[in-house]
Amino acid sequence: MDLRHSLRGTGVAIVTPFTASGEVDYTALENLINFQLNNGVNYIVTLGTTGETPTLSKEEKKDIILFTYEKVGNRAPVVVGVGGNNTYELVKDLAGLPLDKAAAVLSACPYYNKPTQEGIFQHYKVLAGASPKPIILYNVPGRTGRNMEASTTLRLAHEVPNIAGIKEAANNLVQCMQMLKGRPDHFLIVSGDDDLVLPQLACGMDGVISVAANCLPKLFTQMVNAGLAFDFAKAKALNDQLLEAYSLLFAENNPAGVKGFLAELGLIQNTLRLPMVPLTHESQQKVAAYLKQLS
Results as ranks from 00 to 15, higher is better:
Ser131Pro: 10
Glu168His: 00
Val160Cys: 07
Gly145Val: 15
Leu198His: 07
Ala130Asp: 08
Arg155Thr: 09
Met148Asn: 04
Asp193Tyr: 03
Pro184Glu: 07
Glu118Pro: 13
Val211Arg: 11
Ile166Phe: 04
Ala150Lys: 01
Arg143Trp: 12
Cys176Phe: 12
Thr152Gln: 02
Met205Phe: 07
Ile135Asn: 04
Leu188Thr: 12
Ala169Arg: 02
Leu154Lys: 04
Gln178Leu: 08
Lys114Pro: 14
Val211Gly: 07
Ser191Gly: 04
Phe121Glu: 10
Thr116Arg: 05
Val190Met: 08
Lys114Gln: 15
Pro134Glu: 09
Ile209His: 03
Gly204Ser: 00
Asn171Lys: 14
His123Thr: 12
Cys203Met: 14
Phe121Ala: 14
Val208Tyr: 00
Asp194Gln: 03
Leu198Ile: 08
Arg183Ser: 02
Lys181Cys: 11
Ala130Pro: 07
Ala150Arg: 00
Ile136Arg: 11
Pro161Ala: 07
Ile136Ser: 08
Leu188Asp: 03
Glu168Met: 00
Ala170Trp: 11
Met177Thr: 10
Val160Ser: 02
Thr153Gly: 08
Ala130Ser: 11
Arg146Lys: 15
Val140Pro: 05
Gly142His: 13
Ala169Phe: 04
Phe187Lys: 06
Thr116Ile: 04
Met179Asp: 06
Ala169Glu: 02
Gly142Ile: 13
Cys176Thr: 15
Ile120Phe: 03
Asn147Asp: 15
Glu159Gly: 06
Glu168Asn: 01
Val160Thr: 08
Ile120Asn: 07
Ser210Phe: 12
Arg143Ala: 14
Cys203Gln: 12
Leu188Glu: 03
Gly192Phe: 00
Met148Trp: 03
Gln122Cys: 13
Lys125Asp: 09
Val126Phe: 04
Gly119Cys: 09
Glu159Lys: 08
Gly129Glu: 09
Arg143Ile: 14
Ile209Ala: 04
Ile209Glu: 06
Val211Thr: 12
Ala157Lys: 13
Gln122Trp: 08
Ser210Val: 11
Pro134Met: 13
Lys133Ile: 11
Tyr138Asp: 00
Leu156Asn: 05
Ile189Gly: 00
Pro161Phe: 07
Ile166Trp: 02
Pro141Lys: 14
Ser210Pro: 08
Asp193Glu: 10
Gly165Asp: 04
Asp193Ile: 10
Leu154Gly: 03
Ala150Pro: 04
Ala130Glu: 09
Pro199Met: 01
Val160Leu: 05
Lys133Arg: 13
Glu118His: 13
Asn172Val: 09
Val211Ile: 14
Cys203Lys: 04
Leu156Ser: 06
Glu149Arg: 11
Arg183Cys: 02
Gly145Ile: 15
Gly192Cys: 01
Leu188Phe: 02
Gly142Asp: 12
Met179Tyr: 05
Ile163Glu: 04
Asn171Cys: 15
Lys133Val: 13
Ile189Trp: 01
Lys133Gly: 14
Thr144Ile: 08
Leu196Arg: 01
Asn162Ile: 05
Glu159Asn: 07
Ala157Gly: 11
His186Val: 06
Arg146Asp: 10
Ala170Thr: 13
Thr152Lys: 06
